[in-house]
Computed example of a mutant assay.
Amino acid sequence: MRVGTVREIKNHEYRVGLTPESARELVVHGHQVWVETGAGLGIGAADSDYESAGATIQPDAKTVFDGCEMVVKVKEPQAGERAMLREGQVLYTYLHLAPDPEQTADLIRSGVTAIAYETVSGPGNSLPLLKPMSQVAGRMSIQAGATALEKAHGGRGVLLGGVPGVMPGRVMVIGGGVVGFNAAQMAVGLGADTTILDRDPEVLEKLGIHFESRAKTRFSNRANIQQMLCEADLVIGAVLVPGAAAPKLVTREMLGCMKPGAVLVDVAIDQGGCFETSHATTHADPTYVVDGVVHYCVANMPGAVARTSTYALNNVTLPHALRIADLGWKAALKANPHLADGLNVSGGKVTYQAVASELAYDYVPVANVLG
């Protein structure tokens, strides 16, 4: 199979779908790899590194899209990229379709087979291809929030860890999954007064055992969220419903009691955000203010630490890429039900139930598509 990767064109997105090492693995398996020139520069990988791995450098994205049976990316295809997709081609990347009707419609029209990293499953209902970026985003959320809290960036002027004789900042983490756990680890490490909210008693128990007295836990309901919002300096939105739009857990009305200059970081923004007042921002212009509260809603947070993120991502995406290339997408999905969970759109049909429900499309089970 001819497999390609292109330079990401989303604002300040420096990650790349295939590292030179991943390209080499595909070549060793007998496949051709085409790489758009400059695709790896954001992680410090030159064209010559890909050529040394056995890949062929192509002059532009169109050549890669036109000539490859599978395209491996990081972020969802932008409008210009979607116009280059075609029926029978495999697109393997993050998609986040539920809050993105335009992208979904374009993928349906193209006839492409679109496999989404974020819905590929693992044992115990885990999301192994989402996990490393959730780890990165969770840790970055505290860095980003700490910066936004600085007075020069519109925040309250609070140092999260405090200093002797001065109280530390209060951090509220909504959601105790991978993002929330990693955010809490960073907040606790800085010495912040940290509270994690979740609805699952088992998750709360595990968090309590892990953090002991270093972080507090509370059951997530409207009353507790409202109370904690009034006290918090920094709020991390870390909720996830796999494949579906994130629930709006914080309304605009609830912002009324927050301290002026407090900060919201919405890590769920890829799935539409969990704050009613959230809208996606970029690394070029990451924050805005609503009712005196600073919002940080960058939709590709891990792109800022592109090298770490790309290698962490390739560690988990490459095995499935090899399986698809070796067997063909239908045989690969038939052989691996976890990978089959990643199929969101194929041949003009929506094959992921949460996306179909959210955007009012007919749902076609993956099994029907695989025959």
Results as ranks from 00 to 15, higher is better:
Phe211Leu: 08
Leu229Ala: 01
Gly273His: 08
Thr217Asn: 00
Thr282Gly: 13
Glu276Ile: 09
Arg222Asn: 05
Gln271Trp: 05
Asp233Trp: 03
Cys297Arg: 01
Tyr288Pro: 06
Gly237Met: 11
Glu253Asp: 15
Gln271Ser: 11
Ala284Leu: 09
Gln226Arg: 15
Val290Glu: 12
Gln227Gly: 11
Leu264Met: 15
Ala299Tyr: 09
Arg214Tyr: 13
Thr251Pro: 15
Asp233Asn: 04
Ala245Asn: 10
Ala238Pro: 07
Ala280Ile: 03
Leu255Val: 08
Pro242Cys: 04
Asn224Thr: 13
Ala246Ile: 02
Gly261Arg: 08
Asp233Tyr: 02
Ala280Thr: 09
Phe275Ala: 07
Cys257Ser: 14
Met254Cys: 10
Cys230Ala: 11
Pro247Tyr: 00
Arg218Thr: 03
His295Gly: 02
Val235Ala: 00
Gly243Cys: 09
Asn224Arg: 12
Val241Ile: 15
Leu264Cys: 13
Ile269Val: 15
Tyr296Glu: 01
Gly208Ser: 15
Val239Phe: 09
Asn224Gln: 11
Thr282Ala: 08
Pro242Lys: 10
Gly261Asn: 02
His210Asn: 03
Asp266Gly: 08
Ser278Asp: 01
Gly237Arg: 02
Tyr296His: 09
Pro260Glu: 14
Cys257Lys: 12
Leu240His: 04
Val290Asn: 03
Ala244Met: 03
Arg252Tyr: 04
Gln226Glu: 15
Arg252Val: 14
Ser213Ala: 14
Ala268Thr: 08
Met258Tyr: 12
Glu231Leu: 06
Cys257Phe: 13
Phe275Leu: 04
Arg218Ile: 00
Ala299Phe: 05
Ala245Arg: 15
Ala223Glu: 11
Gln226Ala: 07
Val263Glu: 08
Val235His: 04
Ala268Arg: 15
Gly261Gln: 10
Thr251Asp: 02
Cys297Met: 08
Val289Ala: 10
Val289Met: 09
Ala244Leu: 05
Leu249Gly: 06
Lys216Asp: 14
Cys274Ser: 12
His283Gln: 12
Ala299Met: 09
Glu212Ile: 09
Ser213His: 12
Met254Asp: 11
Gly273Asn: 07
Asp285Asn: 15
Asp233Ile: 00
Ile225Ser: 11
Val289His: 07
Val265Ser: 15
Ala245Glu: 11
His295Ala: 00
Gly237Glu: 00
Val293Tyr: 01
Lys216Arg: 12
Lys216Val: 01
Leu240Asn: 06
Gly243Tyr: 01
Cys230Thr: 13
Arg218Trp: 03
Asp270Val: 09
Arg214Met: 14
Val267Cys: 03
Val298Asn: 11
Tyr288Ser: 06
Gly272Thr: 04
Ala223Gln: 09
Ala232Gln: 03
Ala262Asp: 07
Met258Ala: 03
Gly256Cys: 13
Val294Met: 08
Ala223Thr: 07
Leu229Arg: 04
Ala232Arg: 00
Ser220Asp: 01
Tyr296Ser: 11
Cys257Val: 08
Val263Ser: 10
Ile225Thr: 10
Arg218Cys: 07
Lys259Ser: 06
Lys248Phe: 07
Asn224Glu: 11
Asp270Ser: 08
Gly243Leu: 10
Ala223Ile: 05
Val294Gln: 04
Lys216Leu: 12
Ala268Cys: 11
Gly237Ala: 08
Pro260Gly: 09
Thr217Ala: 00
Val263Gln: 05
Leu207Ser: 03
Leu207Thr: 01
Arg214Phe: 14
Ala232Val: 01
Gln227Leu: 13
Leu229Trp: 02
Ile225Val: 13
Cys297Ser: 09
Glu276Val: 14
Glu253Val: 10
Gly292Gln: 01
Asp285Tyr: 05
Leu240Arg: 10
Arg222Phe: 07
Val293Asp: 04
